[in-house]
Amino acid sequence: MNAFRLAGDMTHLISVLVLLLKIHTIKSCAGISLKTQELYALVFATRYLDIFTDFISLYNTVMKLIFLGSSFSIVWYMRRHKLVQRSYDKDHDTFRHQLLVLPCLILALLIHEQFTFKEVMWTFSIYLEAVAILPQLVLLQRTRNIDNLTGQYVFFLGAYRSLYILNWIYRYFTEPHYVHWITWISGLVQTLLYADFFYYYISSWKNNVKLTLPA
C-alpha cells in the first residue's frame, strides 16, 4: 500500500460518503444520475466477486463492503424511497447505459488476462468503471444549477482514479513485473473523461462562481 493508493481509496470513500450524506440527510438526489449509480453498483458487484473467497486484508474487505453497501443503498434510495425519488430528474437522466454495458462485456470477453469467469468479470468491471460516469456528466450538462454536494461528489470520484494512476506509476517503478495495461489504459480513459469537468469545476471554484457545464 503506497500513499497514492491510500489517498485514492480515501478520496473514493469521500465521494461515496458525500453522496450518501446528500441523499440520506437532505433526502435529495437532485443532479445525480441513477444510471451512473446503477453502473457503479454493477462495477462493484462484478469486481468484488472474490470478497468471500480471497482474503487480502481487513482494510481491503472492509472497503469492498463499504463500496458494495453504499452503491446498492444509493440505487435503492433513488428507486424506492418516495421522498428521494421526488428530486430525481428522470426526464434528463436518459443516457442509454445499456449501450455501455454490452460493449464492455464484449471487450472483456476479447481482451483479458485470463479467460476465467472471475477474471472476465473483473476485466468487465474495469472497462465499465471507465465509462460509468458518462450518464452523470451528461446529466450535469443538462442540469442548470449544480449544487455543491453534487459537484464535490463528481470531483472526488474523478480525483480518486487519477490518484490511482500515480499509484500504478509508483508500483511500476518499485515492483518488478508490475505491468497491467488493461487497468492502466482504462484508468487513463476514465480520468480523461473528467478532464473538462475538472476544468470547469476548478475555474468555477477559482472565480467563485456557480458551477455550470456548457451543454
Binding site: 481509496d9 473514493h12 486484508s57 481491503n60 473483473w122 497491467h180 487497468t183
Partner: peptide
C-alpha cells in the same frame, strides 16, 4: 497459484 498481486487493489 494465489491471486495475482494486483488484485489487492480496490
Amino acid at each position: 497459484e494465489s491471486e495475482p498481486s494486483y488484485k489487492d487493489e480496490l
